[in-house]
């Protein structure tokens, strides 16, 4: 099967809100926000689709573990509040400027920020 084009543009976290505003002005749809826990950092991918054009374009920021904050894109994409609350609840990141902040209560979890560990702690159940 042929895959659709999926370019990924690396970005400095500081530039994220401006780039999101630019994408919003172009009328792109926010498709998803996905974080991956890497050994020394969190890799966050923001995926967009342009109306009437094929393919998905992603913006990718790397957030070092010792910083763990990322600016919000809810100024341009209000719908990102679900994804950004997920970043806070599951990954233990702090999203700055989040317009609808659940303060860690969007998910009801047995343990805090379960995705913040790169490798799962060995545990017997």
């Amino acid at each position: 099967m042929t895959m659709e084009e999926q370019p990924i543009l690396p970005l400095d976290p500081v530039q994220l809100p401006a780039k999101a505003a630019e994408f919003a002005a172009e009328g792109r749809r926010l498709v998803q926000v996905c974080a991956t826990t890497l050994p020394g950092s969190f890799e966050i991918t923001y995926t967009f689709e342009a109306a009437g054009a094929p393919g998905l374009t992603s913006l990718r920021v790397l957030v070092p573990r010792d910083r763990s904050t990322v600016p919000s894109i809810t100024e341009s994409y209000f719908a990102a509040f679900t994804y950004e609350n997920e970043l806070q609840d599951l990954f233990g990141l702090k999203v700055e400027g989040l317009k609808l902040d659940f303060q860690g209560t969007f998910y009801h979890l047995a343990r805090k920020a379960p995705f913040s560990e790169a490798k799962p702690p060995k545990e017997g159940k």
């Binding site: 498709v31 996905c34 826990t37 991918t45 995926t47 719908a79 509040f81």
Partner: peptide
């Protein structure tokens, strides 16, 4: 639309598997 994102690192276990389901996108 459902999104399945996979990231492999050459082992039998995926490094990251992420699903963005349609209802999640429709909540806003």
């Amino acid at each position: 639309e459902v999104i399945h994102y996979v990231k492999g690192n050459g082992t039998r276990h995926l490094e990251r598997y992420r699903v963005r389901t349609p209802t999640f996108a429709n909540v806003p």
